[in-house]
Design a protein around this nucleic acid. Structure first.
Lengths: 215, 215
DNA sequence: TAGATTGTTAATCGATTAACAATC
DNA sequence: TAGATTGTTAATCGATTAACAATC
């Protein structure tokens, strides 16, 4: 199978296509043209067609795209038909919030364990998943076929823990710590830097206020 | 003052520069060249100089950049010297987690209120901030000089609540709901779509597995 | 002064948009 | 068949990289 290089820009848009198609599906819309979709998503029709054609010709001339089919196909591209076992590392506020967020299960992500260094959390469970001690983590990963670790710990220890995760053979890390992790090429990292997002918000407020300063 | 158009790509990198400079500052590094910084951040030196020169000449030939000065200046550009009052709308798991996250205070974001529709949450407080009923929200925004609303509610009600926020004169929305908000031009929206981030992770796992399938 | 490194212009690369022939 | 809309090639636009004169 020929492997074309897909740009980051396209990959970033894929989940958004998936979301919009899911909404259309819920609304009972059977088919949609790139032009109609472009208006909803505030993109150009051209860009949508280009993006999709990176992965194949999902449409039909004169008809457009079948919503259900395209939704399913993008789901496949995103790997959502696969099940992924994951653990949460760091049972603080954010870790607990993500553990409680059962919605991920619908997308094939199955919470298998929660880990923390704090011994007072021992015995606690979230959605029937017990909090375990960090010292048990490596063995747990190996024995329970864990693919993904969600890292919700302070940045100070994130790099060391990431190293442990890599040693244990983790395949991917969803990183919420405020550091950039340097891991081997065979480990996938997707970071969510909340404070950077908030700074962009702050930047835009400043710019807006500057532009509208009355003087 | 001349307003140059700053590209989204540059804005996205700004907080990351700020973070790296903060780390250098903590480590006691006084000055750094674009070349050294580029190696740490895995960018090109050229890109760093281009990015910074969108905002002014912060460096000195033959010397490089003064870490403390540059850190401060980027902080100003990001608007971090300003204080921003904010409220959290939706006191579920994520809302509570963000309310507990006191780190935002350091960056000038001050939690003034938490709102929810659920009456059983009435009387609860997080870091001395009481949970109030959604019906009080509009007046509270107007009376307490609230600039930012953090939206951590299900997507079903997000659009309606966003409308209320706009009506109450909110300046910016940090949106965690799984919808794209359509608000007037004078309201700033910064979205964090966690499920889309997770899908990109999933995509990368699939791509990796495909490339390494033994056949 | 000589060496280092910026600020900035020019060249390249990649992504987005436009156009249109193919085709349902 | 005529109309609609895709898939795809070509044109444009913007962002990144390279190069180098200016200068500390």
């Amino acid at each position: 199978m020929e492997t074309r290089k897909i740009s980051q820009a396209v990959i970033r848009r894929l989940p958004r296509y998936y979301r919009y198609l899911g909404e259309l599906l819920e609304d009972g819309v059977e088919r949609i043209s790139s032009n109609d979709l472009s208006k909803r998503m505030k993109l150009t029709a051209s860009q949508i067609r280009q993006d999709l054609n990176n992965f194949g010709g999902f449409g039909q001339q004169g008809y457009g795209y079948n919503v259900k089919y395209l939704h399913t196909e993008i789901g496949k591209i995103l790997g959502l038909e696969n099940k992924h076992n994951f653990i949460i590392v760091g049972a603080g506020n954010l870790g607990q919030a993500l553990a409680n967020y059962s919605h991920f299960e619908n997308q094939g992500f199955i919470l298998k364990g929660i880990f923390d260094v704090n011994p007072t959390l021992r015995g606690m469970s979230i959605r029937d998943v017990p909090v375990r001690m960090m010292s048990e983590m490596k063995d747990f990963i190996k024995e329970n076929n864990i693919e993904i670790a969600v890292l919700t710990i302070p940045k100070e220890c994130a790099i060391d823990v990431a190293k442990d995760l890599v040693d244990a053979g983790i395949q991917a890390i969803w990183n919420f710590a405020h550091v950039d992790l340097n891991v081997p090429d065979n480990v996938i990292v997707e970071s969510v830097h909340l404070s950077e997002s908030l700074m962009r918000l702050s930047y835009n407020i400043s710019r807006y206020n500057e532009d509208h300063a009355d003087k």
